[in-house]
Simulated assay, not measured.
Amino acid sequence: MSADVWLPVHAEEIDGLPDRFDYRFWDGGPEFPADPARCVFYGVPYMKGPEVSVRPLREMTAVRVIQTLTAGIDHVQPALPGLPPGVRLCNARGVHEASTAELALTLTLASLRGIPDFIRGQDAEEWRQGFRPALADKSVLIVGYGSIGSAIEDRLTPFECARVARIARSARTTPRGPVHPLTELPALLPDADVVILSTPLTDATRGLVDGGFLSRMKDGALLVNVSRGAVVDTKALLTQVETGRLRAALDVTDPEPLPAGHPLWHAPGMLITPHVGGLTSAFLPRAKRLLREQLVRFAADEPLVNVVATTT
Score class of each variant (00 low, 15 high):
D35G: 13
K235P: 13
G29S: 09
R292M: 12
I167Y: 14
V143R: 15
V5R: 02
L112N: 03
N306C: 06
V231M: 04
E97C: 06
G144T: 10
V87Y: 12
F41R: 01
F118N: 11
F25C: 03
L17F: 07
L222P: 00
T199N: 09
I272P: 01
I14S: 01
R20N: 14
G49Y: 14
D193G: 07
A136K: 01
T243E: 07
E302H: 15
P257S: 12
V231D: 00
F159L: 07
A79F: 15
L83P: 07
R93F: 15
P33F: 07
Y42I: 03
L7T: 00
A249T: 08
K48P: 05
L237P: 10
N225P: 06
L182P: 11
T311A: 10
P190T: 11
T280R: 01
A165H: 14
R120Q: 15
T239D: 11
A165N: 07
I167N: 09
F41M: 08
P18C: 02
P8Q: 02
Q129L: 13
G144H: 09
L214W: 13
L83K: 04
P8K: 00
A230Y: 01
T199V: 09
V252F: 06
Q129N: 10
V232W: 01
V307Q: 05
D4L: 10
G207K: 03
P268G: 07
S111M: 05
P36Q: 10
V63T: 10
G16A: 12
